[in-house]
Design a protein around this nucleic acid. Structure first.
Length: 235
DNA sequence: GCAAAGATTTGCT
DNA sequence: GCAAATCTTTGCC
């Protein structure tokens, strides 16, 4: 992955269609990134960098290509790809991934997390009448920033990892023509833009800036029944 | 030093 | 559609 040191909006657009990979060999988990958001500089009032460097966001101020992983709402992790040169805090949040390989490993990671601690309200107590949660489709396994980290087993331990190093257990790769995973990261990929999600606390123009990039129509986009209006098409 | 909210997800009302 | 789970960081006293 190159060009991560350049303009963050350009980097975000290029990350859509790229692959997120965990591990190697037959058990490797591979997914195609279908939704991202850009967080740019200390002036971005929606960015964690708005209040300067802290223990949590230190990686954002470091070199590009590394993973910035943080804990949100005390229960979910979120993965970002650091962009821009050293000392310029910026990153691209990976919001949704379309699973391509290692599906069973991903399901295993999800179930392990559920076993560790119930999720959401009213966990366990084995409600007699309630049915078990329905099995999500493959496409919905990583349909949100928190879920991406769940199925790829990403935690704060991955903070700072060089995602561009082929030797990293967690890394970014371009779609290769050799395999037949069937994804497309080429010039033909359509990328739409829209405002970022979950930043209602931010003032304008940050609230409405179209700094979210996604593959329109992808079944793996974030949100339960969230609409993903196509505001603009690029590439 | 303490209160409040957050780049989320889920199940129940 | 709403509230809960859960903990780090931020803002105010």
């Amino acid at each position: 992955m190159d060009a991560l040191a350049t303009d963050t909006l350009e980097a975000a657009r290029r990350l859509v269609g790229a692959r997120l990979v965990r591990g190697s060999g037959p058990n490797a988990r591979i997914g195609r990134i279908v939704e991202v958001e850009a967080y740019i500089g200390r002036t971005d009032m929606a960015s964690h960098a708005r209040s300067g460097p802290t223990r949590r966001n230190a990686t954002m101020f470091g070199p590009p290509g590394h993973a910035y992983v943080y804990l949100v709402y005390g229960m979910y992790h979120c993965l970002n790809v650091v962009t821009e040169p050293d000392n310029k805090p910026a990153a691209v949040l990976i919001r949704a991934v379309e699973p391509l390989a290692g599906i069973e490993e991903m399901r295993l990671a999800r179930s392990e997390r559920l076993a560790a601690r119930g999720t959401g309200r009213g966990r366990s107590e084995a409600t007699p009448g309630s049915a078990a949660a329905p099995r999500p489709s493959d496409a919905r396994l990583a349909s949100g920033p928190g879920l991406v980290c769940v199925v790829f087993s990403i935690t704060r331990a991955d903070d700072g990892v060089d995602l561009c190093d082929p030797a990293s257990d967690l890394r970014l790769e371009q779609a290769s023509e050799g395999d037949d995973l069937g994804d497309d990261a080429g010039e033909n990929l359509i990328v739409a833009t829209g405002p970022r999600i979950g930043i209602d606390y931010a003032p304008e123009p940050w609230l409405s800036n179209a700094w979210r990039f996604f593959v329109p129509g992808s079944p793996s986009l974030s949100g339960r029944n969230r609409a993903h209006p196509v505001i603009g098409r690029k590439r």
